[in-house]
Simulated scan of single mutants.
Amino acid sequence: MTRHILIGLIALLPVQAAAGTIGKSEQVQACVLRQIDAAAPVADCVNEAQTECLDLVMKAPMASVACFRDARDTWNGYIGDRMAHISATAPTELAGVAGIEVKYDLLQNLMQCDRMIDLTLLREDPSEATEAQKARCEATATALAYVKLLLQSRNLN
Rank of each mutant, 00 (worst) to 15 (best):
V65C: 06
R136S: 06
I7Y: 03
V57D: 05
A95D: 02
E48C: 00
S87G: 14
T92P: 08
A11R: 12
I79R: 00
L119W: 08
L56W: 03
G99D: 09
A38Q: 14
A143E: 09
M116D: 14
A145T: 02
A38C: 11
L6M: 08
I7F: 07
L150D: 12
T2I: 01
K103C: 10
H85S: 11
N109Y: 10
T89G: 02
K59C: 02
P126C: 02
E131L: 12
E138Q: 11
E26N: 02
D70A: 11
Y78T: 05
R3C: 01
G23N: 08
A30C: 02
E131Y: 04
Q152C: 03
T21A: 14
A71G: 05
N76K: 01
D55M: 10
E93C: 00
R34T: 12
N76E: 09
S87I: 04
M111A: 15
S64W: 00
I86E: 03
D114K: 10
I10Q: 10
L9D: 01
V28P: 03
G77N: 01
G23C: 07
G80V: 02
R72H: 05
L94K: 11
Q29C: 01
C113W: 01
A90E: 11
A90K: 08
K103S: 15
D125G: 06
A129H: 07
I22C: 10
Q112S: 13
A17T: 07
D118Q: 14
I36H: 09
L54F: 15
L13I: 03
T92M: 10
P126Q: 07
K103R: 15
I22A: 07
M83W: 04
Q152P: 00
L12W: 03
A141M: 02
P91N: 12
V42A: 05
Q152V: 09
L119K: 10
Y78P: 00
V57W: 02
V15A: 07
E124R: 04
E128L: 07
K103W: 08
R154M: 15
G20W: 05
A43N: 14
E124Q: 12
T2F: 02
Q108N: 13
Q16H: 09
K134H: 10
Q50S: 11
Q16S: 13
D81Y: 01
T120L: 13
A98Q: 05
N76Y: 01
A40T: 14
A19E: 15
A90C: 03
A135F: 03
Y146A: 04
S153D: 07
A141E: 06
G80K: 11
M1S: 13
V46A: 14
E124A: 08
V28W: 09
L12K: 08
A49F: 12
L94I: 15
Q50P: 01
V57M: 07
E101R: 14
Q112L: 13
T120P: 03
V28K: 03
Q133S: 11
M1V: 08
A71S: 15
H4T: 08
G80E: 10
L9W: 01
R82P: 01
Q50K: 06
D73V: 01
E131H: 03
L151P: 00
C137K: 04
L151I: 08
H4K: 10
R115Q: 11
T140K: 08
I22R: 07
E26V: 09
D55R: 13
Q29H: 13
P91C: 03
N47E: 12
T120G: 11
G80C: 10
